[in-house]
Amino acid sequence: MVPFLDLKAQYRGMKAEIDEAVIAAIDSTQFVMGPQVGAFEERFAAFCNTRHCKAVSSGTSALHLALLAAGIGAGDEVVTVSMTFVATTAAILYSGAKPVFVDIDPRTWTMDPALIEAAVTPRTRAIIPVHLHGLMADMDAIMAIARRHNLIVIEDAAQAHGAEYKGRRAGSIGDLGCFSFYPGKNLGAYGEGGAVVCNDDDLARRISLLRDWGQESKYNHVLAGYNYRMDGIQGAVLNVKMNYIEAWTEARRTIAAQYDRLLASHPYRRPAPRDDCRHVYHVYAIEIPQRDSVQAALDAADIKTGIHYPVPVHLQKAYADLGGRPGDLPVTEALASRFLSLPIYAELRSEQVSMVVSELNKVTLTEAA
């Protein structure tokens, strides 16, 4: 069997360090925020090459607070993509604003900058590009459009810890960058967690207040805030994992390169990252016809796969009131029906990668026959 993700293998590799850090966090009785979280914030800000990191309770709360700190609210519009997890859209709606979807580039599977300006109206206040699967969007083009129209840029970097665009880290190019530390992420907590990074002192201060009930000091509430704080145990876990994130990233990139070599003679399309970008492969996805039957056959062979994402947000029942219809975003919709995510994690062995591709070849040959 080849699992899609093996968090137990990761834990076994650092069990003593994790256990010690968690016990120390419990012994300290600093269960909410506290020194472990503060230490992680310093390390993650340095990792992202930003001045500030504010740890929060989830990637969703990171996006929500970034929007609020930037002053986005009722009546505003935010340009984003539908090929993403629903949290991107949900956070925009939480802020009172309206998401406006643009299609993705068929080569990179990230926001197509050529479509942004047509979506901008007098109500547009922000752009949220999504760094899908660990590959950063075309940030220079997006930032140029944003500056022409005086728009805030919030990077949804939930899948892009350590990704780079022209030597700049994910989260460091836009006005704000938002990360998730959900357990399956490249840098995952042992529960929920997230962070906002930025270089602006005022934005950082506002996020610090908003995550902690708007308190400037205890019981002194200067903003109407939220309970979006990170707990101390997650800070402890993430501090340990920071020791490994670069090695894990390079392991993922090595595995992706092996997939690339083994699939080079096959017609399975993959994203085309720029030479000056560092893809961190949170997901290794291929575009394949008859995706559902191929996935079922691989599952029968004990090869576990995923789909990121099978139904775009604009076609989800929960967001039908936004008015999305089939055909609105043709590239997004076509890819959603053909994406298949193959196993990838730092502990995946070379022979397992070969096994995945071998079974994939058998399945697709059968499909073709």
Rank of each mutant, 00 (worst) to 15 (best):
Gln10His: 11
Gly13Gln: 13
Met14Asn: 12
Ile23Ala: 14
Thr29Asn: 15
Ala45Arg: 13
Arg51Val: 08
Ala55Gln: 03
Ser58Asp: 02
Ser61Val: 13
Thr80His: 01
Phe85Thr: 14
Val86Lys: 13
Thr88Ala: 09
Thr88Gln: 05
Tyr94His: 13
Trp109Gln: 00
Thr110Val: 02
Ala119Phe: 01
Val120Gln: 04
Pro122Ile: 07
Pro122Gly: 07
Thr124Tyr: 04
Ile128Tyr: 05
Pro129Asn: 05
Pro129Gln: 04
Pro129Lys: 01
His131Val: 03
Leu132Arg: 14
Met136Trp: 03
Ala137Ile: 00
Met143Val: 13
Ile154Glu: 02
Glu155Ala: 04
Ala157Leu: 01
Gly171Met: 00
Ser180Lys: 05
Gly184Glu: 12
Lys185Phe: 08
Gly191Ile: 10
Val196Gly: 07
Arg205Gly: 11
Leu210Thr: 09
Arg211Gly: 09
Trp213Thr: 11
Glu216His: 10
Asn220Phe: 07
Leu223Glu: 11
Gly232Val: 11
Ala236Arg: 11
Ala247Ile: 10
Ala247Tyr: 05
Ala256Lys: 03
His266Pro: 01
Pro271Val: 03
Pro273His: 01
Arg274Lys: 12
Ala285Lys: 08
Val294Pro: 06
Gly306Trp: 05
His314Ser: 01
His314Ile: 01
Ala320Gly: 10
Val331Pro: 01
Ala334Lys: 03
Leu342Ser: 05
Glu347Lys: 12
Glu347Ala: 15
Val353Pro: 06
Glu367Gly: 05
